[in-house]
Amino acid sequence: MIELILFFKIIAAIIAIESKNLLSAIVSLGAVGFALAIIMVFLNAPDVAIVQVLVEVVLLVILVRATLHRDLTDLKGKREFFVKVFGIVAVGAFFLGIAWGLISLPVFGSFPETAVSVAVPSEWYLAHGLRQTGISNIVTAVLLDYRAYDTLGEVTVLFSAILGAVVILRKKR
């Protein structure tokens, strides 16, 4: 099932990149993002799926609103043949390298292989999360308790990006 949606997703991605119309490119990007959200539901990740859907909506609205009415929505100009061939060859070589490297990963869906121990943190979170933090959504427990420092960094990154956008779009030099 996941593989099927993934095929669809890759096709949408190729359309998003190759389409000559910017609006259809952005809509195809939306398809890629929402397909990811659906896959997340299949992968038992409701928290992430919610965030993914919402972020995708924000991005699409911002992309359409901020970019589309500014430029010609149809891209003109001939495509450079050699650039394309080179790109495809390079990406193909890249993929062969990756296929070699992926062989040693643990079997898909086999998490975890070891018994409950402190050396595998996610096991620890599942086993002791409720007792230690008192909340039942373990993902929130990891985000805001065990790895709260990451979340501080993340909020700061968001703050920094907002400040940056405000600075870049300010009126005076």
Partner: peptide, 14 residues
């Protein structure tokens, strides 16, 4: 965090 702030700082002159 360092990278995002540096992007904005590079573009500071607009």
């Amino acid at each position: 965090l360092a990278a995002v702030s540096s992007f904005a700082l590079v573009a500071y002159g607009t």
